[in-house]
Amino acid sequence: MALIELRDINKTYNNGQPLHVLKGINLDIERGEFVSIMGASGSGKSTLLNILGILDNYDTGTYHLAGKLIKDLTESKAADYRNRMIGFIFQSFNLIGFKTAVENVELPLFYQGVPRRERHAKAMEYLEKLGLTQWATHFPNEMSGGQRQRVAIARALITKPEIILADEPTGALDSKTSVEVMQLLKQLNKEEGITIIVVTHESGVANETDKIIHIKDGIIGNIEENTTHSAWDGSVMK
């Protein structure tokens, strides 16, 4: 069984006019893959990501994550699964402003009930891994965008999740930092074998991944194998 198994996922939003966003998504993602989901805005890629991240429900179909059926979960069960199985990286970093870098990184472990010392030691370990040791006690607004995104990555990694979901991870970064962040994700995938799914609308970003899943009008289009990273002509990322 694949790590992620989506079978005929349908999702309709009912805001006045019913909007059929996902029209039968079938998708398998194996452990250790580095994939991107590409699509224009309105294609349903964000909705798909939200469903993958257990942030939103779907109407029909089945979603198995690491063998567990993710359907009609209670809020607290969903929170628990998110905490243990999924690491999020957001476009806008989503760090808590009044917490220092190390406190932000610790937070997922806090919700697991890990003791303070252990949590702190672990957070420092991950910050060191991402080269942020000297920034540990700084607040997010004292850091650059790249540093903030690295703090967010450390926070996503600290629970050793099954998958990392990155929603436009470079969307708020300049091109140089974007390359650095993508290199970092690539390295994490290669060296630690972490499954990473990147949602993006930028070809340059998608090209860094090994597999590009195109989504259009709520259905999966072609799936490009991209192990040679030649899906894109190599012009400037942005």
């Binding site: 607290s76 929170a79 999020f88 760090l95 808590i96 919700y111 697991q112 629970t159």
Partner: peptide
């Protein structure tokens, strides 16, 4: 928004 972040990374409603 802050609560949203907390929830995304695993805070249960009770917390």
């Amino acid at each position: 928004h802050e609560f949203g972040i907390r929830k995304a990374i695993g805070a249960k409603p009770g917390k």
